[in-house]
Nucleic acid binder design. Structure first.
Lengths: 251, 251
DNA sequence: ATAACTTTTGGTAAAAATGACATTAAGTAA
DNA sequence: TTACTTAATGTCATTTTTACCAAAAGTTAT
C-alpha cells in the first residue's frame, strides 16, 4: 500500500546512488503495484465495439471496466498484457501496443498502482470472448454506448481512441479488424466508421489500389442482392518490402 | 527487490478482487520500483543536442545516462519527471510528454523497476543546466555523438527520437526549440536538422506562411553581413483557434 | 429470356497542390 | 557608388486530388 505520510524528505535520501545501491534500503521506493489495462477494439455490423468486463467484486463492483490485471513481480509488462487478455477472453497472440502510463497517486483505491494502457484491434468474428472467474462477463459494447467506467478507465479509453485514429491514418492497421478476405467497400465503410468521414467510392478505390498493398483474389462476394464485388486480401509481404524502402502509409 | 522465485501460481491468487481487496495481502504485488527517464532535446548551432548525465555512482558508474530518478510513493509520475529535471538542471515548467513504459523484469540491476520515458524540447540558449549532487555533471551532447548509454537508455532514446520526428511533422513543436523571435530561414534550418531533409527556400516560406501561424514582427535580424530577414513569432492564440476548428498541422 | 435495378469498376476533366526555378528587393561592406 | 549576399516574390509546368460520369456485371422480378 502507498504510504501517504511519506514525503520526499522523509527518506533522508540525497541522491539515487551516492553510495553503492546495494548497501541502502530503498524499501520505501519499492512499494508500487503495477498493472495493465487493455483497450480492445472490434468491428462488426459497421460499428466500432469495445471489449468490456462487468466487475464482479469490489472495488467498483458492478461497474464496467477495461480488462486489466496486476503484473507479477517476475513478469514483463508486455507479457502481462497478453496474459490478461488470454485469461479473460481466451484470445491469444494479439497485436498490442502501449498507449500511456497512468500514475496519479490516488487512482487506485487498493494502494499505489500505476497502470499501462494497451490498445488492440481484432476481427470480432474470429474471437468469441468468454467470462473469467473474477468478472461477471466479457462483452462487446458499442463504442457509442460505453458508459462511465471504473477507476480512471474512461480516460484510458479516451487516449486509446485518439491513438487508434492516429494509427489508422498512418499505418494499415485497419485490416486487423476485417476478415482475411474483404471487398473494397467493406474497407471503405470501416475507415469511414473509424475516422467519421465520408469518401468518394471511386477515389477511395484508386487511392488504396495505387498503394499496391492489396492482393486481388479470384473470388467474389457471395449472397449479396446485387453485383458481387471482387475480394481482396492484405499483402503483408509487399507491405514489409515497402516499409523497408522507406514507404510510409498515409490515408 | 524483485522476488525472482515467485511464479504466477505461487500466490495462490485466482482473481484480482474475488474477495474484498482489503482482506487480502497483495504484498507480493506491491514490490515494484517506478522511475522516470527524461529525453531532453535541445538545438544549437544548427545541431540537435541531447541532455545527458555522467553517472557518478554504481551501477553503471562513469557511463552516460538519461536524467532520471525513482518516483516517490506519494508522487504523481508526471510530477516526478518535472522534479527530476528541475533537481538536475534547474529547468522548471518544461513541456514534457510520455513516450513509452519499459517493463522488462531484469532491466534494472537494483531490482524490479519499471520506468517511463519522457521527451521534451528546449531552446538551449534559455537554459544552462548545472550538475547535481549525484551526477558528475550534466552536458549537452551532440546527438550524432551519443555513445552507448547505461541501463536500457539507448532504447529509450531511440523511441523518443522516433516520437520527436512524428511530433515535429504533425504538430508545431519545432517552435519550442527556437527563440521567441526567429527568421524563416532559422525555422527551415531547424526542420531540416530535425528531419534530415532539404526544402526549397521559397516553397518552405509559402507553406509555412499559408498556415497563418506566424506573426510577422516589425523587426529584422541584427548583425548579419547581408540583408537582414524579417523576424516572426509563433501565434499561439491563432493555433488554438485553428485546432478548435479541427485544423491539423502537417509539414 | 429479358428488363429493371443495384453496385462495381474504369475513366475523364477541372481544380488544387507541389516543386523547380527565375527575378526583384533590400540590406551590408568596400 | 558598386559589388555582394541573402530575403522575398512571382511564374509556370507537373503532379495529385477531387468531383462526377458512364459502362460493365451481377441479381431479382417478370
Amino acid at each position: 500500500m502507498a504510504d501517504n505520510t511519506l514525503t520526499p524528505d522523509d527518506t533522508g535520501r540525497k541522491s539515487q546512488f551516492a553510495v553503492p545501491y546495494y548497501e541502502i534500503s530503498y524499501d520505501k521506493f519499492f512499494q508500487f503495484g503495477v498493472s495493465v489495462d487493455c483497450v480492445v477494439f472490434g468491428y462488426h455490423d459497421n460499428r466500432l465495439k469495445l471489449l468490456l468486463i462487468k466487475r464482479g467484486a469490489a472495488p467498483f463492483k458492478g461497474m464496467w471496466a477495461l480488462p486489466g490485471d496486476l503484473v507479477y513481480p517476475n513478469e514483463n509488462i508486455d507479457v502481462a498484457a497478453q496474459r490478461t487478455l488470454r485469461d479473460l477472453t481466451g484470445i491469444e497472440d494479439l497485436y498490442m501496443e502501449q498507449t500511456k502510463v497512468y500514475g496519479k497517486v490516488d487512482r487506485h483505491p487498493a494502494g499505489r498502482v500505476i497502470t499501462t494502457g494497451y490498445y488492440s484491434l481484432i476481427d470480432i468474428a474470429k474471437h468469441d470472448p468468454h467470462a473469467s472467474a473474477w468478472a461477471d462477463g466479457v462483452y462487446w459494447v458499442d463504442l457509442e454506448a460505453v458508459p462511465e467506467l471504473a477507476f480512471d478507465h474512461s480516460e484510458i479509453l479516451k487516449d486509446a481512441l485518439q491513438l487508434l485514429q492516429q494509427r489508422v491514418r498512418h499505418q494499415p492497421v485497419g485490416f486487423e479488424l476485417l476478415p482475411e478476405k474483404f471487398a473494397l467497400a467493406d474497407l471503405q465503410a470501416l475507415y469511414e466508421a473509424l475516422l467519421n468521414e465520408k469518401y468518394d467510392k471511386a477515389n477511395f478505390r484508386k487511392r488504396i489500389l495505387s498503394m499496391n498493398l492489396l492482393l486481388s483474389l479470384k473470388e467474389n462476394q457471395k449472397d449479396v442482392p446485387h453485383r458481387p464485388a471482387r475480394l481482396y486480401k492484405f499483402d503483408t509481404q509487399r507491405y514489409d518490402e515497402l516499409i523497408a524502402k522507406g514507404f510510409s502509409f498515409e490515408l
